[in-house]
């Protein structure tokens, strides 16, 4: 039987096009990761050696030191690293908690409840998302500074208000998270309403319906809300940088911002390796979040982008 037979399944051959795709994706991918490689290596330099080395693309220290990494993890006498890390962490947890709570409940209200003016309210809230955030920057500063009866203010003026206090970070929490509300609503609308009715027939109350039946179905989209909020807060340098000044209130990104603006100043040599290690300390937790939950990021990006 040497006669040629029509092959139903083509045998997989080494496809030159696939090979080229691998080369491009991997090659460019490694270039994209270069800044992270550099950060890891630079962390092993001492301040003195770093300033004396003529930097090549791949710097290898002659006398590698763990000092920077130790300072990052355990803190040191002249650095409040652990305060920065804890501040970042508390802010992130706080904002993520509120984002989840408000977007889930608001998403439920808009997807499942019937009330007058629902569509109008929904569209108005969405429309505000198009206004760029920069416009509120200065008014927010004024609002925080003039917060009634806070820190020496009579009704509006006189003191510093809640600027430069923990309230700067706490104040925004309970406000509705419009982006998350939108996503949860879209996702809830794909759950058939018959499920609610069946649950009610079986005797479930509203709270039970919301938290025991609908909530578990929304976990993927809530994961996306949580991840974007967590990453956004963790990397946010602007809020602490503009609205706080004392050292004990800084977060990792804002501390780096301050160190690097101090580095531009005329006095002394900047401690680049330490700054870079702090930067790595900022980046790594974000990477961990990303690696553990990347499935949800892909799904979430897709659902925001493609269809409702």
């Amino acid at each position: 039987m040497a006669s040629p037979i029509v092959r139903l399944k083509p045998v997989r051959k080494a496809n030159p096009l696939h090979f080229a795709a691998h080369v491009v994706l991997l090659g460019v991918g490694l270039i994209l990761l270069y800044p992270l490689f550099f950060m890891i290596l630079a962390g092993f330099f001492s301040k003195e050696e770093f300033s004396m080395t003529i930097l090549p693309f791949i710097p290898i220290p002659n006398n590698p030191t763990l000092m920077n990494y130790k300072t990052l993890i355990f803190g040191s006498v002249d650095s409040s690293t652990s305060t920065y890390i804890l501040n970042s962490l508390y802010r992130t947890l706080y904002n993520t908690f509120w984002a989840l709570l408000t977007s889930f409940l608001a998403g439920y209200a808009f997807a499942r409840l019937k009330f007058k003016g629902k569509d109008g309210l929904f569209l108005t809230l969405l429309a505000t998302q198009m206004i760029p955030g920069t416009i509120a920057l200065i008014p927010t500063y004024l609002q925080l500074a003039r917060w009634p009866y806070a820190n020496g203010n009579d009704i509006f003026t006189g003191g510093t208000g809640i600027l430069n206090t923990w309230w700067v970070y706490l104040i925004g929490g309970p406000a509705i998270n419009i982006m998350g509300m939108f996503l949860v609503k879209q996702s809830l609308e794909k759950v058939p309403i018959e499920l609610d009715e069946a649950a009610k027939v079986d005797g479930a109350g509203t709270l039970r319906l919301i938290f025991q039946i609908l909530l578990p179905l929304q976990l993927p989209i809530l994961a996306f809300v949580a991840i974007t909020t967590a990453l956004g807060t963790w990397n946010d340098f602007a809020t602490p940088f503009f609205y706080t000044s004392s050292d004990s209130l800084q977060t990792l990104p804002s501390a780096i911002t301050r160190m690097s603006s101090a580095a531009i100043g005329p006095v002394g040599t900047p401690n680049y390796p330490m700054m870079i290690t702090l930067g790595l300390g900022t980046t790594l937790p974000a990477l961990l979040i990303f690696f553990f939950f990347q499935k949800y990021i892909v799904q979430g990006l897709a659902s925001t982008g493609i269809k409702g």
Binding site: G29, L36, N235, G279, V298
Partner: peptide, 19 residues
């Protein structure tokens, strides 16, 4: 590849502009 290419998006601007 998808993960590698997306990694820069989750890094902090302050830290990476420094590099």
């Amino acid at each position: 590849y998808r993960s590698i290419w997306y990694i820069p998006a989750v890094t902090s601007t302050v830290a990476t502009t420094q590099i």
